[in-house]
């Protein structure tokens, strides 16, 4: 179909009237600060500004075993959350796309409703469940599975559980859009050709929805490694992640050089994964 030519917005100069100001705004308050962050990460040492760049902050963060663990832990959390999100959201997404129930709309709304709540609200619920007097321990003691309440908090596992819960809707969205884009006749075709249900799923559905799975994993991973609230509430000093350590550098210790350097490392990890994802053939993020 043809758009009307000579419309209001075909001229280049007039178009710039629309994008000029927002572009300027982003250059000033997004690009410039990000560039400044890079420079701060090498121009501040021990909280003091320097005249010339130094790799010192990076040497500390990448060289000391405490920070190495912080970074590794973040990656572990990211991978764990990514896997959990994909595993949990696939059946939900499949169900939501294929169900003929008249509650379908409501079920989709319920699945996505956690997006409306702040991560803090959702994580707080996990605190209530997992703390020493919490619901889970109450259940375990009542069922006489344990004698004494377990110490489930703070722990990395709790952080993974909390973040998987918080980021589940992103996985569902990503996989749903992939399933929605798939022709359902393909599954019928596979079965008419003699594939069993499992065979059809493994050989047709799963490969075709791989981009959605990849997208969900990458999204969950990158949101998990940069999440602050959940590790802060369900973790402690022994379970520090990149995000919580950045907060400590910036607010508690006031070493903005180290904070910036950790920020750059976080940013690089996130970008690296995105790059990896697009190289592996996963398309760009579908959800969000």
């Amino acid at each position: 179909m043809t758009v009307i030519e000579k419309g209001a917005l075909s001229g280049g100069s007039r178009t710039w009237l629309l994008v000029g100001l927002p572009t300027l705004f982003l250059l000033l308050f997004f690009v410039a600060p990000t560039l400044y962050l890079f420079s701060a990460s090498v121009m501040i040492s021990d909280g003091m500004p320097l005249d010339r760049p130094t790799p010192e902050n990076y040497q500390i963060l990448l060289g000391r075993s405490f920070y190495q663990w912080v970074i590794l832990r973040s990656f572990g959390v990211g991978i764990g959350v990514g896997l959990a999100v994909v595993l949990l959201s696939y059946p939900v997404a499949y169900f939501l796309v294929r169900t003929t129930s008249r509650w379908k709309g409501l079920l989709i709304a319920v699945t996505l409703s956690p997006l409306l709540a702040s991560v803090i609200v959702r994580t707080y619920g996990w605190y209530v469940i997992l703390n020493q007097e919490g619901a889970l321990n109450g259940l375990l003691v009542w069922a006489r599975l344990v004698e004494q309440p377990l110490r489930l908090l703070p722990s990395t596992a709790a952080i993974i559980v909390g973040l998987s819960h918080a980021l589940l809707p992103y996985g569902v969205l990503s996989i749903m859009s992939s399933l929605n884009g798939m022709n359902p006749a393909l599954e019928r075709a596979a079965m008419s050709l003699g594939a069993t249900r499992t065979g059809t799923f493994l050989r047709v559905t799963l490969p075709l929805t791989l981009p959605g799975i990849m997208g969900g994993f990458i999204l969950a991973f990158s949101l998990a490694i940069s999440a602050y609230a959940t590790p802060a509430i369900l973790g402690g000093p022994a379970t520090e992640t990149m995000a919580t350590s950045i907060r400590n550098f910036m607010v508690a210790i006031l070493d903005w050089g180290l904070g910036s350097a950790m920020g750059v490392i976080l940013l690089a990890s996130s970008l690296l994964l995105l790059l990896l994802g697009s190289v592996l053939g996963g398309r760009k993020r579908t959800a969000a």
């Binding site: 600060p33 990000t34 962050l37 990158s222 940069s226 602050y228 995000a243 976080l266």
Partner: peptide, 8 residues
């Protein structure tokens, strides 16, 4: 990551 945007 929005956290990085924040500190920047």
């Amino acid at each position: 990551p929005s956290l990085v945007t924040g500190i920047a």
